[in-house]
Amino acid sequence: MSDTARAGRQVGDGPLARGAATVHILLVVELMLLLTTAPGLVGLVLLDRDRSNLPLAALCLTPLGPAVAAALHTLRHQRPDLTDLRPAAVFRRAWRANLGPVSRIWLPLLLWLTVVAVNLAHRAAVGLPGWWSALLVVVAVTALLAGVNALVITTCFTFRTRDVARLAAYFLIRRPGVTIGHAALLALAAGVVAVGSEAVLALLGAVFVALLHRTSRPMIDTIEKEFTA
């Protein structure tokens, strides 16, 4: 082994170097997340927190699905080695590759959740009974959790959209720990927005995606063992 290769290996293998590489990857992923969601993020920050703005808020969220998928792919496939760090390039490739498949999951989910949110926000005007409103909330939360599963599955594997939907619903029950973990992450994200703002949540985006990847590992591992060759 040449001196240059040996030196590169020493730089890339030490615990301090791995830690520095991980921080570097998270910072780059955070920057890419902000860049790819910037138009929507600006709109969210400028919108008043009024129920009449729910459709506009949903429109601002349309870039979020592909951006999160690209970030998840980057964290999953980028090796924390200082001699081979290319998180920005990995993110760009993942964003382009996943834009179509993720959008087929993300956009219908976002539309459905928006319809539910608008109906709940105007339940007095539309005459929704209390039990129906509660049922809508349960259905919306379930759909959101299944959507998170579907986003992870689409990012990590190549399945048909209908198979992704089936697996996403199946793993809500098959891996309850993953479902609870995703629910906790969503609740934490909602709390950050409620206490701070959408901008604060955006600045923590890479950390949330890393937690999403960690929480989803049991589901990912099971799919790799049982549903892929």
Rank of each mutant, 00 (worst) to 15 (best):
A7S: 07
Q10T: 09
G12E: 03
G12A: 15
G12W: 00
G14D: 06
P15V: 03
P15E: 06
P15I: 06
P15G: 07
L16F: 13
L16E: 08
R18N: 00
G19C: 08
I25W: 05
L26Q: 03
L26H: 12
L27E: 09
V28H: 01
E30M: 15
E30S: 14
L31A: 15
M32S: 10
L34F: 15
L34G: 11
T36R: 14
T36Y: 15
T36N: 09
T37G: 04
P39H: 08
P39A: 08
G40F: 02
G40N: 12
V42K: 10
V42I: 15
L44P: 12
V45C: 03
L47I: 02
D48Y: 15
R49T: 02
D50C: 14
S52I: 01
N53F: 13
N53C: 08
L54I: 14
L54Y: 13
P55D: 00
L56W: 13
A57V: 00
L59C: 12
C60H: 06
L61M: 09
T62N: 07
T62S: 12
P63D: 02
L64H: 10
L64Y: 06
L64K: 11
G65S: 00
P66G: 10
P66E: 00
A67K: 06
A69I: 01
A69M: 02
A69N: 08
L72H: 05
L72C: 02
H73S: 13
T74D: 01
L75H: 09
L75P: 02
R76Y: 05
R76C: 07
R76V: 10
H77A: 10
Q78F: 10
R79H: 09
P80K: 13
D81Q: 01
T83S: 14
T83I: 00
D84P: 03
L85T: 09
R86W: 04
R86I: 00
P87C: 01
P87F: 05
A88Q: 07
A89E: 11
V90A: 14
R93N: 09
R93P: 10
R93A: 06
A94L: 05
A94C: 05
A94V: 01
W95E: 10
R96S: 09
A97M: 03
A97Y: 09
G100V: 13
G100K: 02
V102N: 03
S103H: 01
I105P: 07
W106H: 15
P108N: 01
P108C: 13
P108K: 03
L110F: 12
L111Y: 06
